[in-house]
Design a protein around this nucleic acid. Structure first.
Length: 862
RNA sequence: GCCCGCGUGGCGGAACGGUAGACGCAGCGGACUUAAAAUCCGUUGUUCGGUAGGACGUGUGGGUUCGAAUCCCUCCGCGGGCACCA
């Protein structure tokens, strides 16, 4: 007997979701197949750092990927959808310091918690491939990679100035320095000279830059950021002779302005500056001040140009002019040659400096606009006061001057990049040990492959700040593999970005027991990643490093990959409201309540609360929503649905509790439909194959439903291909609405409803898989909806025979007529003209032109 | 400063150059209920009008077009990235 729609109870998600999650795990439903004949699809979300909790920002990332994975399975791909843990890193050590837990214990505990949370989200991962970068097998193999890169000359050791965090006692990457302070400690970063290991990312700089053009599946935004980061500039180097008889090499992208050069400037870090400082106290003082100043942020903000004259001059290569050499704070040592020639008339910085120190300014490029005599002049123009360059355009002058400099042996064409080699040493315990020993006799010695892995010692003490490996009583003392004498291990560990630069390759390898984590056959069958999903915050770092690694490993013969990620999707951030006290303290949402007057107050104290903007969820702002809380209250399907509803996945997502409620209601609406249909006899027994979706001999309204359904299949499929999940949800809701319109007739159309609901479940399953499995099972369909194939639509059902045709007069809508699409043109015009509102707006005027686009519009021009 | 991206109802957002506002959230009205919740039905850009039907409307100003949210130019605003890169 059919139940009453209104009497169907609330959907009991908790048991349902647990049941299907267990089944998927047990049956390994989402295990990638080893069949290489099947078309493959590798979908990957950026793996998380095991911080301890999955928040809704994570959930968004993984849900988007999961929908893509489930959809591709349904359309027939052999899908690889793995997950793992970016598990080394400082937070584990800080937790150890704070709570006395071992970093390893803390990390693996967090992984267990987060794995459970992920499984409770119904994410369709191949869990057999899961690993953490702190697993011995992984980092042990990584040490082999280190050796291979070293042997290829892609790793080197260099003494250089690095960012040093005096509180955390370790080196920071440039990107971890925010506003001159450590991102974690907040302490002003110091500069320190240290011997560090570097990866020679610059060896592939041209390739990394040029191949960006081929990354057609990447967002333009990310490509632009990478191009800027690499920062290629073409120009030439010029060698000047100093009054002391030395060579001073400068780099310029504007060699055409050489005749306007009035001084030279070198970086305080330039070797010549250091040398001069030994004898010149003014230079020495300036360098000292510079070092001090470079730490303070306000100094950078002011961007005030300062310098000191060295007493040294150089000869201008073409003029009888001596150019003074300054040490100047605005010249960077790590770009170009650390020295420039300055043409104040055509460079803002040179101009500022010249004004301050009263140096000559000589114009050599004339503006095409004769009235423009403003300086500095930075645009294109015609060369003047420049001897043999006079009359040339900037472009031509550049070529001419470079040629001339080459001819006289004073310069050469050169290209410089902003990209610098990647410092990978970290003075931390919780990272991958570097497989190197320092031998007093042999110097730096690589370990042999047989000596690997170098395992992290478990018995470390964290009471003191600094690197516990360095203080460990025995760990670092070892034998030199070359001479057998006493040696000391490298106690620095690798930057965790090293770990995450090849994890996507390790996922490809199927055999858990293989010692080769970069098995070539496996790599060949799965790489490249067909779809990578992650936050835009990795636009440069991780994504550039991973690209570099692919090339470097290929160079070493360990892989054969040009570009690792064929398509990249960057999802937006999840944002939520913030609450603060008037003194600026952040408040948790549960600490505040609405007042009668419509404002907010602190529940405990009644203090006034300032409601802030939607901001990116962060612990410090106390506006993070924990995925567990939502899953417990509404279930995973509701969270999954909500997180992809409404907002396109590449935009920032405004979290709202009301929105969650709305999705929960929709899920119940679905549930009632399935239960009701089931009680009416809808189900597998009334389906006779896909061809029945045609059901030719049916009543008109069911005819319409069929058309709506085919339209839905097309719309949903197209939107999924574009990753417009918000539109997918809209089309599905629309479809459910039109089914509800006919639900009273369900008894007389059991067959039609059976087929439509079966196909609808397939469309819904990628987004809300649990409820779909349950309904699929309840209605008696075979197997799992997760294994069902994607519905197809027929073009003939998308055709429209009747249309509500809009009629415009002078481009303004004046009415519509219902006509057959193929109706005779003259007939349509006649019908259109007969519409009273159309007549009114023509009202006696003569029709000058008639536009008719069949199936679209009529426009009368009067 | 430079380089991107974006401006559509109260809100999230739809819209191959062709009926702007699909779908949802919030709101309003109604049915059911002793009542509430849930559910179902209707309604909701602004404005004039009793209705019919108008006027206005996609940040601003212009242009192209029979027709512009959509294409081109100007300006304004917001967001992001880079930032002494020679």
């Amino acid at each position: 007997m059919p139940v009453k729609l209104s009497e169907i109870g609330v959907y009991a998600f908790a048991d349902v979701e647990a049941k299907w999650q267990a089944k998927w795990l047990k049956e390994e439903t989402f295990r990638a197949k080893c069949d290489r004949k099947l078309p493959k699809y590798y979908i990957l979300e950026m793996f998380p750092y095991p911080s301890g909790k999955i928040h809704v920002g994570h959930a968004r990332n993984y849900t988007v990927g999961d929908i893509v994975a489930r959809y591709h399975r349904a359309v027939g791909f052999n899908v690889l959808h793995p997950i793992g843990w970016d598990a080394f890193g400082l937070p584990a050590e800080n937790a150890a310091l704070k709570r006395g837990v071992h970093p390893k214990e803390w990390t693996y505990y967090n992984i267990r918690v987060m794995r459970r949370q992920m499984q409770e989200l119904g994410l369709s991962y191949d869990w057999r491939r899961e690993f953490a970068t702190c697993d011995e097998r992984y980092y042990g193999f990584q040490q082999k990679i280190f050796l291979a890169l070293y042997k290829k000359g892609l790793i080197y050791r260099k003494r250089s100035e690095v960012n040093w965090d005096p509180v955390d006692n370790c080196v920071l990457a440039n990107e971890q320095v925010i506003g001159g302070c450590g991102w974690r400690s907040g302490a002003p970063v110091e500069k320190r000279m240290l011997s560090q290991w570097f990866l020679k990312i610059t060896a592939f700089v041209e390739e990394l830059l040029n191949e960006i053009d081929n990354l057609t599946g990447w967002p333009e935004k990310v490509k632009v950021m990478q191009r800027n980061w690499i920062g290629r500039s073409e120009g030439c180097s010029i060698t000047f002779k100093t009054s002391k008889g030395e060579d001073l090499v400068v780099f310029s992208t504007r060699p055409d302005t050489i005749f306007g050069a009035t001084f030279l400037a070198i970086s305080p870090d330039h070797s010549m500056a250091r040398k001069l400082a030994e004898t010149d106290s003014k230079v020495a003082n300036f360098i000292k001040e510079f070092k001090k100043g470079s730490v303070a942020q306000e100094f950078l903000d002011r961007q005030e140009k300062t310098g000191v004259y060295t007493g040294v001059t150089v000869d201008h290569p073409f003029l009888d002019r001596k150019l003074p050499v300054y040490v100047a704070n605005f010249v960077l040592m790590n770009y170009g040659t650390g020295a420039i020639f300055a043409t104040p008339a055509h460079d803002q910085r040179d101009y500022d400096f010249a004004k301050k120190y009263d140096l000559p300014i000589e114009r050599v490029v004339a503006s095409p606009n004769e009235n423009n005599d403003e300086l500095p002049y930075l645009d294109d123009g015609i060369l003047v006061n420049s001897d043999f360059l006079n009359g040339l355009t900037v472009d031509k002058a550049k070529k001419a001057i470079i040629q001339k400099l080459c001819d006289i042996g004073a310069g050469k064409r050169e290209t410089f990049f902003k990209l610098l080699d990647w410092g990978i040493s970290r003075q931390r315990y919780w990272g991958c040990p570097i497989p190197i020993v320092h031998c007093s006799k042999c110097g730096i010695v690589l370990l042999n492959n047989e000596d690997l892995p170098v395992l992290l010692p478990g018995d470390v003490a964290f009471e003191q700040p600094g690197n516990p490996l360095d203080r460990h009583p025995i760990w670092k003392h070892t034998k030199c593999p070359q001479c057998g004498g006493g040696a000391v291990r490298e106690t620095d560990t690798l930057d965790t970005f090293f770990d995450s630069s090849w994890y996507f390759l390790r996922f490809c390898v199927d055999d858990a027991n293989s010692s080769d984590l970069l098995n070539k056959d496996d790599l060949a069958s799965w790489m490249s990643v067909d779809q990578y999903v992650g936050g835009v915050e990795h636009a440069i770092l991780h994504l550039l490093y991973a690209r570099f690694f692919s090339k470097a490993l290929t160079e070493c013969g360990l892989a054969n990959i040009r570009e690792p990620f064929a398509n990249l999707f960057t999802q937006g951030m999840v944002c939520s409201v913030t609450y603060r006290k008037e003194n600026g303290d952040w408040l948790f949402p549960e600490e505040v309540r609405r007042t009668i007057s419509g404002g907010y107050e602190v529940i405990k104290t009644g203090e006034n609360v300032i409601v802030g903007n939607l901001e990116k969820m962060s612990k410090s702002k106390k506006n993070v929503v924990d995925s567990d809380d939502i899953v417990k209250k509404y279930g995973a399907d509701t969270l999954r649905l909500f997180i992809v509803s409404d907002t396109p996945p590449d935009r920032d997502f405004p979290w709202s509790d009301d929105g969650v409620e709305g999705c929960w209601r929709f899920l119940n609406r679905l549930w009632r439909l399935f239960v009701y249909a089931h009680s009416c006899g809808v189900g597998a027994k009334r389906c006779y194959g896909i061809e029945n979706l045609a059901f030719e001999n049916c009543e008109k309204h069911i005819h319409q439903l069929r058309k709506d359904f085919h339209r839905t299949v097309k719309n949903v499929t197209d939107a999924l291909e574009e990753k417009a999940m918000n539109r997918v949800v809209a089309y599905l809701r629309d479809c459910v609405n039109s089914i509800y319109q006919l639900v009273d007739d369900i008894d007389t159309h059991i067959d039609a409803f059976s087929i439509i609901i079966r196909e609808l479940l397939k469309l819904l399953a990628p987004i809300v898989p649990h409820i779909c499995e349950e309904a699929w099972d309840m209605l008696g369909f075979e197997g799992l909806v997760s294994n069902a194939s994607w519905p197809s639509y027929e073009a003939k059902y998308l055709e429209i025979s009747m249309i509500n045709l809009p009629i415009q007069v002078n481009g303004k809508l004046r009415g519509t007529i219902d006509v057959a699409v193929n109706m005779d043109e003259e007939m349509i015009f006649a019908r259109a003209l007969a519409v009273p509102t159309v007549q009114n707006s023509i009202s006696g005027k003569s029709v000058k032109n008639k536009i008719f686009i069949r199936g679209k519009i009529i426009n009368f021009v009067v």
